[in-house]
């Protein structure tokens, strides 16, 4: 189980300045649970994934705690982290072609993922790899074992990447936009596979995506990120039914699907704040339709009834009940 506690990531940029890409995120992924981390480009969701994987740009500063099964990953040496990656946490990224070596048989790449972390014979690794390929829905896996990646379609390649990621029964899978490069009908297959595998293996998934539809379809819980901070989190059902943070609400409203050509789509005016100088108060304040004085100080984190959290003054004085925001 993954526990992210008040994680901050600062990345150096030109001119000796720092971008606070992640500004104090607290988040947990339980076993067998899919948590959707959603936000627009530049919100820091992939950087947070990188912080968990120990794959931040060089020179970055990381503070806070990243606990995996109770063990703090921040103090690990490079070699210890390499052991953890692929064994306890695994990554599935957007482009499956970039994750697979084009010159090696796909099966061998899955088998290698197993042998990197476990001392077993080649033959045993091969047998396990075939079983993994079967589990992720590659038809006739024994025969496809020796095929190079270019013989596979995009969707099939992503299945192979998932097989390799799950090779060592990781506690947590970080899936960074795993279906963004795929066609809709193929995306549906991969999402279904992810859902199915988490139920079967108990692996927790942090699903990083920009697509609220994907979150609604497969996630148990959702965390909405804006400008480096999680502004709202809770169960998918609660947050979609009654988004408490104005940004969450605006994001849901700007989905074209919600408006069957009933005129203009609601938009969020203004720009994301410059994270080299993050605003002192709520980072959404400058674009928020319901901004008031208190928003220039930091927003409170309010517990909601369903066990979720929202970082907004609107809910500070209110009882922690899902209030209807008009």
């Amino acid at each position: 189980m993954l526990q992210i506690d008040d994680v901050r990531v600062r990345i150096p940029v030109k001119g000796g300045r720092w971008v606070e890409a992640v500004g104090g995120v607290t988040l947990a992924v339980g076993s067998g649970e899919i948590v959707g981390l959603v936000g627009e480009s530049g919100c820091g969701k992939s950087t947070l994934g990188g912080a968990v994987m120990g794959l931040l740009p060089s020179g970055s500063q990381l503070s806070g705690q990243v606990l995996l099964d109770g063990r703090d990953l921040r103090g690990l040496t490079a070699e210890e982290y390499r052991q953890v990656r692929g064994n306890d946490i695994a990554l599935v990224s957007q482009d499956p072609s970039a994750s697979l070596d084009p010159t090696f048989a796909v099966g061998a790449q899955v088998a290698e993922a197993i042998r990197n972390h476990r001392d077993i014979s080649r033959r045993a690794a091969r047998e396990q790899a075939v079983e993994l390929l079967r589990a992720v829905g590659i038809p006739d896996p024994a025969a496809r074992y020796s095929d190079p990646p270019h013989r596979f379609s995009g969707g099939m390649k992503q299945r192979v990447v998932i097989a390799a990621a799950l090779a060592n029964d990781p506690s947590v899978l970080i899936a960074d936009e795993p279906t963004t490069a795929l066609d809709v009908t193929i995306q549906a297959q991969i999402l279904h596979l992810l859902r199915d595998l988490t139920v079967r293996t108990g692996t927790g998934v942090l699903l990083i995506t920009h697509d609220l539809g994907v979150v609604a379809q497969v996630c148990d819980r959702i965390a909405v990120m804006y400008a480096g901070q999680v502004v709202e989190q809770g169960t998918v059902r609660d947050v979609f039914a009654d988004p408490l943070h104005p940004y969450t609400r605006a994001l849901l409203d700007s989905q074209p699907a919600a408006h069957h050509r009933s005129g203009d789509l609601p938009v969020i005016l203004g720009q994301v704040p410059d994270l080299t100088h993050p605003p002192a108060g709520c980072r959404f304040a400058a674009r928020c339709a319901r901004v008031h004085d208190r928003c220039t100080t930091a927003p409170p984190v309010v517990e909601t009834q369903g066990g979720g959290r929202v970082a907004c003054w609107l809910h500070d004085a209110l009882p922690p009940v899902a209030q209807e925001v008009s």
């Binding site: 009908t185 549906a188 999402l191 699907a257």
Partner: peptide, 25 residues
């Protein structure tokens, strides 16, 4: 129909129960 079914709509209550279309394009 399959294409419409495959679109992940942002409504948790309208979850897909089955894969609308198997196989590759």
């Amino acid at each position: 129909r399959a294409l419409l079914d495959a679109v992940p709509i942002p409504e948790p209550d309208a979850r897909l129960v089955h894969v609308p279309l198997s196989g590759d394009i």
